[in-house]
Amino acid sequence: MLVFGNFMPGISAMSAVLQVENLRTHFFTKAGVVKAVDDVSFSIDKGQILGLVGESGSGKSMTGYSIMGLIDSPGRVIEGRIVLNGQDVTGYSAEQWRSLRGNRVAMIFQDPMMTLNPVLRIDTQMIEAITAHEKITREAARARCRNALSQVGIPSPDERLMAYPHQFSGGMRQRVAIAIALLNKPDLIICDEPTTALDVTIQGQILYEMQKLCRESGTALMWITHDLSVVAGLADSVAVMYAGKIVEQGGTAELLDHPLHPYTKGLLDSVPSRNVKGRPLKQIPGMTPSLLKIGNGCAFRERCMRRTNECEVAPPFTSPELNASHKVRCFHPHVSTEEALTA
């Protein structure tokens, strides 16, 4: 039996659409064990948006894939619980996952072609996505597809339903993928960098649609990105991942205005708008360590200006500030008393 160290069941469990508790997803490769997701816990309530931020390889996608039951060999969820609407789905069979996916939970990928089949017409794909989970006439299904396409701002949906994916631009394809995710009104949507390859105007459109969806239908959203500015405008709360672990977690404003972890602070300080125009940006030295070579201590220690001998062991996840929901995995966080001293 597992022991859930820092998870507090109870209070939010009523309205939580998703609870992830001490999730560990490891890949057993020839070169060694890759701890892609290593003790990750969070929950998302109805209608809430969680931003999951981190560099490439930090484990964001694998966290999403784990929740969708999409981890393939050599990877495996080796520990932890995934609870959807109060139901523990961790041990689900492939069959059970299939009936859940696209129905109660949906995922939108960075590349919309992960969702779309290039040789099938859009209507064929969309209708199939409905009839796989529900007994419904083709006409009713078609009407719902048309509706979903208009919902994501695709003009003349009847015409578009007859088209093939390559006849759409990248932004339109992503909107079709989103429309497919919306078809069965899922309780949870995981968006894995869906706008990273898109322009700001199309990104704005997609953010508008996702935000509307959460507000109107109470869908819970997990928004994976490396862009803190997007998270600032969209999310209710933020989790920052580094090398497979959540290193900081809290309400969006709290976390962005008073980052506790040296990594979060470093990222925020390097954003151009926070620097003097034309002058060198504040930068975090070094690069992300290979997940095979982290060892025991804090994974950020090679790049950290605040590290001490203490950091050679793994730091605990704590709330050093009055606000208990703002948590950090660091021995020497940037706490506000220190800010007051240096200000």
């Binding site: 701002g153 105007t201 199309i202 990104q203 704005g204 508008y208 600032a232 969006t252 962005l256």
Partner: peptide, 26 residues
Amino acid sequence: QGLLAEVPSLTVRKKDFVAIKGEIPS
């Protein structure tokens, strides 16, 4: 003007995103 209005910013929190008017032409 439209482009700049869409640029996400660290200082804009819980923004109300708006829909783009019209379709992006090819």
